[in-house]
Amino acid sequence: MDDEPLRKDRIITDGAANLISRVEELAYELTIDEVMTRDLKAIAPGTKMGEVMETFREARISGAPVVANGELIGVVSLEDLIRALRESNIEAPVGEYMTRMVLTVNARNPLIEALKVFEQKRVGRLPVVDDDNKLVGIITKGDITSGVMHALEYDYQEEEVRRYRARHLFEDIVSDRTSLTLRYKIQHGAFAQGGNASSHIKRALLRLGASPQIARRCGIAIYEAEMNLIIHATHGGMIRVEIEPHRILMEAIDDGPGIYDVDLAMKPGYSTAPDSIRELGFGAGMGLKNIQRCVDDMYVDSTPGRGTRLELRINMQPQESLGDATHKNLTDGGA
């Protein structure tokens, strides 16, 4: 399992390498009950081997759990069936030929646990049990392969479709000036949610086709602003983001205590935040300065006792603009 390539004469491309590590990740992410077969063809120990053959043929399976009084007592497989056939004993009960085994896997475990068992023991299928040791399904290597393939496809499609849809938004809608507005309500003191709105904004920008650099600058600026609202805005506040192909305008508005001296608030190290905020890694008087560093323009409009409006603008270069059509128009000098 070390650095051994899959095959000596084959060079693994970056694309393939990504796929391989994604498959490995999925082995940890997917749980056994997400890929197992639930439709159990449980067989009673008294069933004749001949009947088992019929069941296998009809259901197109190569093995089944053997259950007596609701308890899993073994597994019968094609191999057992062949043994019975070779001994011309297909009238014998399943109990005589089945593999009496107690190897099971828990439904809630990650796939990797089933893979380990498949690798160590030479079994073709594993009964799956729940926390009470009750049989809930069966898993084969084939189930794992198709489960992983399905997840890979889904993974890829989901984000691709979202990006595709979002990226074409600005081209599909015709107007003299199109913009997309996002609004988020921010609650005072809701520290656990701190950064929630910002991560949605950053993701939206990436889906709309913003470069990672632009998305990072916006994300950092609006995250600091969001934390400011949570820390200082006594009645909470609102974040409003207006996205245009060539420009992003972000506003953080509140009717809180206001900033008495904006110049002083801009000074690195000046802070009115209490210690509880500092314990979260904020409130060291860096916020506004950090925001300013990330944006092209920043305006602070604040009245003590009335509230604060922070306005941030990021302008995109033509090659960074969102939506392909606008980009073309700008670089070709328009239609």
């Binding site: 520290f191 656990a192 701190g194 950064g195 929630n196 910002s198 991560s199 950053k202 990672p212 990072r216 994300g219 950092i220 995250y223 934390m227 314990e279 979260l280 890694g281 904020f282």
Partner: peptide, 17 residues
Amino acid sequence: FTGLCTMQVVRTAMMAD
């Protein structure tokens, strides 16, 4: 590398890539 162990560390990581 940090000695701070709060939700904000992960949120910060998301913003700062």
